[in-house]
Computed example of a mutant assay.
Amino acid sequence: MINEGDGGDTIAANLEAEGVVASAEAFTEEVTSRGSTVTFYPGAYQLAKEMSAKAALNALLDPANKLENTFVIQEGLWARDALAAASTATGIPVADLEAAAADPQALGLPAEATSVEGFLFPATYTFPPDVTAQQVVQTLVDRSIQALDEAGVPPEQRWQTVVIASLIEREAGSEEDAYKVSRVIRNRLDPAQFESGLLQFDSTVHYGIGDDSTVETSDAERADASNPYNTYVHPGLPPGPIGNPGDVAIDAALHPADGPWLYFVTVNLETGETVFSATLEEHEAAVEQFNQYLQEHGG
C-alpha cells in the first residue's frame, strides 16, 4: 500500500518489511538516482517477493500493477449508495457490507443511530485487496468521527449535528448558502419564530420514500403522514440523517449565519442562485421568480 503523503523512505521501509526488496536503502538510492521523474500515487500495488530495487520501482511506476480498490463518497450521498460504491471498488458483496454496518453502536456511533446513515464520511478511499467488509465500514465511520472531532463537536452533540448537517448538505446549493440554510433550520425550530415547527424540506420526503431521482414532491407525498421523514407533516428534525455530510455542512450546522430567514427557494437552476426570505410574502415573490425562470427555460 502507498498511502497519501508517503515519501520514498516510507515506501522503501514498507517494501523491505514486506520482503519485496532486500534493502530499503537500495530502493531509496534507486529513487534518488531518477530524480524528479519519480511520482508515487496512493493505492494498492501487486508486486513480487525478492525483487531488485530497480524492478520494484519500475513495478510501482507501472499503472498496470495498481489494484483499483479506490472509490469516492460524494457529499450528501445516501448510505445505500456509498456501500454500493465500496462494493464495486473492493469486490465485497453489498450484503456483507450491510451486515458489517448492521450494529451502529458497535462501530462507535451515537446511541440514537439505527443505521450508519450520516456517518460514512465523504472522501476518497483506497483499500488493499484483502480488506474485509468490517474494515471498510469501520474506516468510513472512523473518518466521520475524526471530522466531527476536528470540527469541535462534543460526542454528546454528534447525533444532532449530523442530522442537521445532512439536511444542509442536501438543501444548500453553495458553501455560502449552507450557513444560511443552517439558520433557516434553527429559525423554523424556534416556536417564537415559526409556530408549526415544520421544516418542509422535499429532501427529507425523498429520503423517506427512498427515491432521490427528482427534486420535487407531489401533493400526495407531502400529505403522507406515514412517512416519518415527511417534514411537511411532522414538526422538528427528521428521525435521522438523510445522507452523509462533509466538512462544510458540519461546520455550517455548528455556525449558522445570522439572519431572520424562514424560507428559501432556488430561482435559477443553472447558477444555483437561491433567495432567502424572512416573510411568506417575500418567499412567494421568490417562488414567482422561479416559476418565471421555468417558463423562460421550458420548465
Results as ranks from 00 to 15, higher is better:
Thr132Ala: 01
Ala133Arg: 00
Gln135Ala: 15
Val136Ser: 03
Gln138Met: 01
Gln138Pro: 01
Thr139Ser: 08
Leu140Ile: 06
Leu140Pro: 06
Leu140Tyr: 04
Leu140Glu: 12
Val141Tyr: 02
Val141Ala: 03
Arg143His: 12
Ser144Cys: 07
Ile145Cys: 01
Ala147His: 05
Ala147Ser: 14
Glu150Asp: 15
Ala151Trp: 01
Val153Asn: 04
Pro154Ser: 10
Pro155Trp: 03
Glu156Asp: 15
Glu156Val: 07
Gln157Pro: 02
Gln157Ala: 14
Gln157Tyr: 00
Gln157Val: 00
Arg158Asp: 07
Trp159Pro: 04
Thr161Gly: 11
Val163His: 07
Ser166Gln: 06
Ser166Phe: 06
Ser166Tyr: 04
Leu167Val: 08
Ile168Arg: 05
Ile168Leu: 07
Ile168Phe: 08
Glu169Val: 00
Arg170Pro: 01
Glu171Thr: 08
Glu171Lys: 05
Glu175Asp: 15
Glu175Met: 00
Glu176Asp: 14
Asp177Glu: 14
Ala178Val: 07
Ala178Ser: 15
Ala178Gln: 14
Tyr179Ala: 11
Lys180Glu: 09
Lys180Gly: 07
Lys180Asp: 12
Val181Met: 10
Val181Asn: 10
Ser182Gly: 09
Arg186Tyr: 08
Arg188Cys: 09
Arg188Thr: 11
Leu189Trp: 04
Leu189His: 04
Leu189Met: 14
Asp190Arg: 00
Pro191Arg: 01
Ala192Val: 00
Gln193Ile: 03
Ser196Gly: 03
Leu198Phe: 09
Leu199Tyr: 07
Leu199Glu: 05
Gln200Glu: 15
Gln200His: 06
Phe201Tyr: 14
Ser203Thr: 15
His206Cys: 03
His206Gln: 14
His206Ser: 03
Tyr207Thr: 05
Tyr207Phe: 15
Tyr207Pro: 03
Gly208Thr: 05
Gly208Phe: 05
Gly210Phe: 09
Asp211Lys: 00
Asp211Met: 04
Asp211Glu: 10
Asp212Trp: 04
Ser213Met: 05
Thr214Ala: 13
Thr214Val: 15
Glu216Tyr: 13
Glu216Ser: 13
Thr217Asn: 08
Ser218Asn: 02
Glu221Trp: 06
Glu221Val: 01
Ala223Ile: 03
Ala223Gly: 04
Ala225Phe: 01
Asn227Ala: 07
Asn227Met: 03
Tyr229Pro: 10
Tyr232Pro: 10
Tyr232Asp: 12
His234Met: 02
Gly236Glu: 11
Gly236Tyr: 08
Gly236Met: 09
Leu237Lys: 06
Pro238Asp: 10
Pro239Thr: 05
Gly240Gln: 12
Gly243Val: 13
Gly243Trp: 12
Gly243Lys: 12
Gly243Thr: 13
Asn244Trp: 11
Asn244Asp: 13
Gly246Ile: 12
Gly246Arg: 06
Ala249Thr: 11
Ala249Val: 11
Ala252Gly: 12
Ala252Val: 13
Leu254Gln: 15
His255Cys: 10
Pro256Asp: 13
Ala257Lys: 09
Ala257Leu: 02
Gly259Cys: 06
Gly259Met: 07
Gly259Ala: 08
Gly259Leu: 07
Trp261Leu: 12
Leu262Arg: 11
Phe264Cys: 10
Phe264Gln: 10
Phe264Pro: 10
Val267Cys: 11
Val267Asn: 09
Asn268Gly: 09
Glu270Gln: 14
Thr271Gln: 06
Glu273Trp: 10
Glu273Ile: 07
Glu273Asn: 12
